[in-house]
């Protein structure tokens, strides 16, 4: 239980570090999405729904955006990945990455639609598209950080 919580905290902090032009303005929930995906596939029993919800809520509170937006998006992403765990666990790294891309695309689309509804205006899709691209590119890098934890999971 400590490992998922610790990795979530690390992802949260990494998301908030001012990377500036390196990753565009606020590459926010990218690391969290990857971490949530990792634990949903590897050991969902170690990561209950509440920490996922709270991590998203903290992102919402700190960002100044709609409170509940990322809490809900992250939660639904986690539940969806957990439902498909049986399929995902059999996949190789590349296929799993492809599945992650599909999941992030859908989550990004959902968050964008919800945010547009919240603000009663069609938000420009450019930023969220860029966020999805950054998250997808970050996936293998962040997996290098998470990979050592897999040893504890199998043990």
């Amino acid at each position: 239980m400590l490992l998922p919580a610790g990795s979530m905290m690390l992802a949260l902090l990494a998301s908030l570090v001012p990377l500036g032009s390196l990753a565009g303005q606020g590459a926010m929930p990218g690391f969290l999405l990857i971490t949530v995906f990792f634990w949903a596939v590897e050991r969902p029993g170690w990561l209950p729904l509440l920490p996922v919800f709270l991590a998203g809520l903290l992102i919402d509170l700190v960002s100044g955006g709609p409170v509940g937006l990322w809490a809900l998006s992250l939660l639904l992403f986690y539940v969806a990945v957990r439902r498909e765990r049986a399929t995902l666990i059999k996949m190789g790294p590349s296929a799993r990455w492809t599945a992650f891309i599909a999941g992030v695309l859908l989550t990004g689309l959902f968050a964008w639609a919800l945010a547009s509804l919240y603000y009663f205006t069609m938000l420009p899709p450019g930023t969220i598209t860029w966020q999805v691209v950054v998250t997808v590119v970050l996936y293998p890098v962040w997996m290098l950080v998470l990979a050592p934890m897999r040893r504890f999971v199998t043990d």
Binding site: L16, V17, P18, G26, M28, P29, V62, W130
Partner: peptide, 15 residues
């Protein structure tokens, strides 16, 4: 000093 870029895809804000 700007310590965090918190905005995310829908909010343009910094701390």
């Amino acid at each position: 000093q700007i310590v965090a870029e918190t905005g995310g895809p829908f909010v343009e804000a910094v701390l």
